[in-house]
């Protein structure tokens, strides 16, 4: 058990290091001269020289890598070139939008998917099941940003219940801020819920065929009690795996969805940084997003142990 945890922890740290190396090599080494990339080909030589100095390009690549990673660990992310403020400050402001958005979307996803998936499995082969499967197929085929535009079209343009985009900030009160995140969260979650509902359904169906389920029924448990106490709990392992993977696609999805709704989150920050060629911000935010994803996958691994005692013994 302890050995397993240590192995997982090592793999987790190794992935973090690998991610930071890839980002560093792609953005700092491959372009040759990052300062040139940031300023464009017709930059003044003096400006180029000043930026090279500011970025510390006179030092060797390994030196710069360790200085950067050391800064990341201390929470010093450098200074944004276009905004001229510390990147840590920028990221802090943006996290309070992206994290609540992703959490809200994940909560909506899980609620919808578990309800639909278990419902479909308990109605296996009947119209209710087909309905959920149809929703699943359509949900997977619809791009989340198009769904977001359709939601804006209906709820903002036609009905006027919501703003078409923007974020009032948490200082405007929890209610308005939450309202601004609701449509984005729904557009992120419907697609993910469609996938997760299918996984839940097939996992529940799989477990329903197990012998212990028949035993539970034979002992006089009601259908409902067997389903929720015995089947769903055992069916959760693959569901949690997919949920972990989905959290990463949710985070990635925020890059597009925040742009659809003009939300000042991390996704919009990284996108703006790319169009402004602010490599300092791109590097930091991409590593941060990758670290979030890797951390979530690590937590998912630990969650298995909490859900399934058999794995604890095997580990």
């Amino acid at each position: 058990m302890l050995a397993f945890l240590l192995r997982r922890l090592l793999a987790f740290l190794a992935t973090l290091v690998a991610a930071s190396l890839v980002v560093f090599v792609v953005l700092e080494v491959l372009p040759g001269d990052p300062a040139q990339v940031m300023l464009g080909i017709d930059a003044e030589p003096e400006t180029l020289e000043a930026l090279r100095k500011q970025l510390g390009l006179d030092r060797s690549a390994p030196e710069r890598y360790f200085a950067w990673v050391g800064g990341l660990v201390r929470g010093d992310l450098g200074v944004s070139y276009t905004y001229s403020v510390p990147v840590a400050e920028l990221v802090g402001e943006r996290l309070v939008v992206t994290v609540p958005l992703a959490l809200l979307a994940m909560a909506l996803t899980s609620a919808m998917a578990l309800a639909l998936g278990v419902y479909a499995a308990s109605r296996h082969g009947r119209p209710g099941d087909w309905g959920v499967m149809l929703f699943g197929q359509i949900g997977i085929a619809v791009p989340n940003f198009w769904f977001a535009i359709l939601l804006i079209l209906l709820f903002a343009v036609r009905l006027g219940w919501f703003q078409a985009g923007g974020f009032p900030g948490w200082s405007a009160g929890v209610g308005p801020a939450f309202k601004a995140l609701l449509l984005p969260a729904i557009s992120l979650s419907v697609v993910q819920a469609a996938i997760l509902a299918r996984v839940t359904r097939s996992s529940v169906l799989e477990v329903m065929r197990e012998d212990f389920v028949r035993t539970a029924r034979a002992k006089g448990n009601s259908r409902r009690r067997t389903l929720w106490r015995h089947v769903v709990r055992n069916a959760l392992i693959p569901v949690v795996t997919i949920m972990g993977l989905q959290f990463s696609s949710l985070l990635a999805g925020t890059i597009i969805i925040e742009n659809v709704f003009y939300l000042p989150g991390l996704g919009r920050l990284v996108f703006q940084a790319i169009t402004q060629r602010d490599l300092v911000v791109v590097k930091d935010v991409v590593v941060l997003l990758a670290a979030l994803v890797v951390t979530i996958n690590f937590i998912v691994d630990l969650l298995y142990l909490a859900i399934d005692p058999r794995l604890r013994r095997a580990a």
Partner: peptide
């Protein structure tokens, strides 16, 4: 492959277009 999986596709696409 584990590592590439951990890296969301949109992020790597954005990295590549940034480069």
């Amino acid at each position: 492959s584990d590592f590439t999986f951990a890296f969301p596709a949109v992020l790597s696409a954005i990295l590549i277009t940034a480069l």
